[in-house]
């Protein structure tokens, strides 16, 4: 077993055991922290697929979190206040909401990705961000769903057999979601599809010359990534029960990118470690001082300047572990 595999197993093991222990020993706050961390880790894992393995620097990933959350919030809103009965979107059923979140995000990724992927380099970074801003402003201007003020989700998604009102069950669902997302991304990356994706990152022209349509491969990865992030968004909506356009602000997309890089892109454990380090640091620093953004920003700069490989690189560097 390589050090990296061991690291992944230890990380996921700790994440599975510690939060419930904290909860059962009377520290429910730490369970909440872990749930948030786990949900954001799912988004970071999905971003890692395109940013890390695909080399596609998407600067608009928070939009998928937001769209996923609103796919829970809007049907719940209509369930309470009426409207949308005709298309059946006045429901609190998670069996409708969660597939809706995934489908909406996949569709959004398909349409925007088809345009974004025609560009490259800094144009790609900026156009992905521009589409996220479009969603942001669209939600801000829809008054029925709270606009700028956000939307309260009065009732969480109802799923057969589990109650998301129980923090422990919500955490468990998020954790299982994270494991599935990691497994899915790992499977994709190790498949022929993943090889093409990574080959196109290294040298797109060469892969094209081999007769492969890298545009289609990239677009598929982009859609898969968006769909997973949409799932994370649906969980996030259920977790916070209050959603607002602020959650898809461009700075949120920047934070997701930071999580991936901090943990270590193109690794399994990287996005999870990155999300964990991000959330825990944010929590620790913000409890110390209102000026916590200062050390946080300095840390970000330092990680970029000196920390190649992220936390995974740091923790598995000795023995030259792969």
């Amino acid at each position: 077993m390589t050090r990296r595999t061991l690291l992944t197993l230890v990380t996921m093991g700790l994440l599975a055991v510690l939060p419930p222990v904290f909860y059962l020993t009377g520290n429910p706050f730490y369970l909440d922290l872990a749930t948030r961390l786990t949900i954001l880790a799912i988004a970071a894992v999905s971003l890692n697929l395109i940013l890390g393995y695909g080399g596609l620097v998407s600067f608009g990933h928070a939009a998928y979190l937001g769209l996923g959350a609103y796919a829970v919030g809007i049907p719940a809103h209509h369930w309470l206040y009426g409207g949308l009965e005709g298309i059946g979107l006045n429901t609190t059923s998670g069996l409708v909401q969660i597939p809706l979140a995934v489908a909406v995000c996949a569709l959004f990724a398909l349409v925007t990705g088809a345009i974004c992927l025609r560009t490259k380099g800094v144009y790609f970074i900026m156009i992905t961000m521009a589409f996220a801003q479009m969603v942001y402003y669209a939600i801000v201007s829809i008054e029925e769903y709270g606009g700028d003020d956000g939307l309260v989700i009065d009732s969480r998604s109802e799923l057969p057999g589990i109650s998301l009102d129980d923090p422990l069950q919500l955490f468990a669902l998020s954790y299982v979601g994270l494991v599935v997302a990691m497994g899915l991304v790992r499977m994709i990356v190790n498949s022929r599809f993943g090889m093409v994706l990574q080959g196109a990152k290294g040298n797109n022209e060469r892969v094209v010359m081999l007769g492969l349509n890298t545009y289609a491969f990239r677009l598929t990865a982009y859609v898969v990534s968006g769909a997973i992030a949409g799932f994370a968004g649906a969980l996030l909506g259920n977790f916070t029960t209050f959603i607002s356009p602020e959650m898809m602000d461009w700075t949120r997309s920047g934070e997701l990118m930071f999580m991936v890089i901090l943990g270590g892109a193109t690794t399994s454990a990287g996005p999870v470690l990155g999300a964990a380090a991000f959330i825990l640091l944010e929590e620790a620093l913000s409890s110390l001082t209102v000026y916590w953004h200062l050390p946080f920003g300095l840390l970000l700069i330092a990680v970029v300047l000196f920390g190649k490989g992220g936390l995974v690189g740091l923790l598995s560097r000795r023995e030259g572990g792969k």
């Binding site: 380099g121 800094v122 970074i125 920047g254 990118m257 890089i261 953004h293 970000l300 970029v304």
Partner: peptide, 23 residues
């Protein structure tokens, strides 16, 4: 470095500058 590193480092710089302005 590549553009991704530029974006991340200057994103950190925004946090630093805004907090300094706040202080």
């Amino acid at each position: 470095r590549d553009h991704l590193d530029h974006v991340l480092a200057t994103f950190g710089l925004i946090l630093v500058m805004e907090t300094l302005a706040h202080m």
